[in-house]
Write a protein that binds this DNA or RNA. Structure first.
Lengths: 202, 202
DNA sequence: GTGACACTAGACCGCGCGGTCAAGACTGGT
DNA sequence: ACCAGTCTTGACCGCGCGGTCTAGTGTCAC
């Protein structure tokens, strides 16, 4: 698409994306019709196709936006932190907080993975994120702070814990993000740190 | 539905479920039409609606089947094992092996979670699985083998690692299930075991 | 005030979908 | 041999979808 947009136009576009994201997350992509989206905003169908060339494009745009936003949040969170392990834990905390603040994003991702035409775009963003995280893991291993195992496996173990706990405890059960973050960090560190650990007594 | 089925009928029904599961996983639920399914099997449309009252019912049936099969596999894997920690690790290994043997199931689950009308059925099965696993975690905590934290958090941490590693390394990268299982178990145990652990040296 | 263009409305279109149905073929029990 | 009931065929239906298009209206630069 890419049109010249006045401030008013930008506002409309954002409205459409925000509302559609909510509906997609709630009801699913296919079950949410373009008609439903424009009706929900009380506008005509022409508005939709002025800003997006198709429903598919809208979805991809929402996905891209969310991935960029998460990445920006993570970068800000670890900015200025030197210790690689702290960078990792801060990243985890930031991700979980972001998850709590953008609840519908999870469903969108899950859906995108199930359809051939959305999977590539999704995967691309996730690979970028995984590479970011893996760099810190590798740094931590090099510094002797994390046990010397395949960084890819460690990284994805961390990502797995983080996303799953986000879904179950933040998304579904509504627990506060910081509590879940504490638990996630504890789990990850005790599985990852090479330093000694006190046994919890028998 | 529930019809009286002759052996021939049961065979057809299985064919339909197997083929549909493959197409759903490959292309998505909505993008796979009933017409496509029956054409793929070279039969008429009436066949489909003889065995299933709707496309939706078919999907739920596939989901239920898979969940039952996984659960059966897990039960068999831990049968006769006493030590709760070993039960957990055996469960992890069995799950990952099952994942490798039933690659398309993952996509189905991911999709089911994104649509209001499938989510309940999915969640129900997952809660059963989580409760199963949690019992062993609680046993392990009681035995002093696992550190004394919220069993739900520990359990879901384990499930998160397991499913995520399955998706990335088995599903996407095609690594052998037993290798991934070793890594998953190592990650989980070092994050969970209360017993002493040797530092990996600095 | 006027022209240029960003923006909006909503009737309309064709397609392909999920689902139906009437007619008949196959199969096994008796 | 026959019948009851399982199984199969494929033309058909109506609906609702994504997407189009025309006739506008709002807005701002000059």
């Amino acid at each position: 698409m890419a049109r010249r947009l006045t401030p008013r136009g930008k506002e409309r576009r954002s409205q459409l994306m925000a509302f559609a994201a909510e509906r997609f997350a709630e009801n699913g992509y296919h079950t949410t019709s373009v008609a439903e989206i424009v009706e929900g905003l009380g506008v005509g169908k022409g508005v939709f196709y002025w800003y997006f060339s198709s429903k598919e494009e809208l979805f991809l745009e929402i996905l891209k936006d969310a991935q960029q936003d998460l990445r920006r949040t993570q970068r800000q969170a670890i900015d200025g932190i030197e210790d690689p392990v702290e960078r990792i834990t801060s990243g985890i905390r930031a991700s979980l907080q972001w998850s709590a603040d953008h609840r519908h994003y999870h469903s969108l991702v899950q859906f995108a993975a199930t359809e051939e035409r959305f999977a590539p775009a999704l995967r691309k963003g996730q690979e970028v994120a995984a590479r970011d995280a893996m760099r810190h893991v590798s740094d931590a291993i090099a510094a002797g702070a994390v046990r010397d195992a395949d960084p890819a496996l460690i990284t994805h173990g961390i990502l797995g814990i983080t996303t799953h706990l986000a879904r179950v405890f933040i998304h579904d059960l509504g627990k506060p993000a910081d509590e879940v973050a504490d638990a996630a960090v504890a789990f990850v560190l005790d599985g990852v740190l090479a330093a000694d650990r006190q046994p919890t007594a028998a």
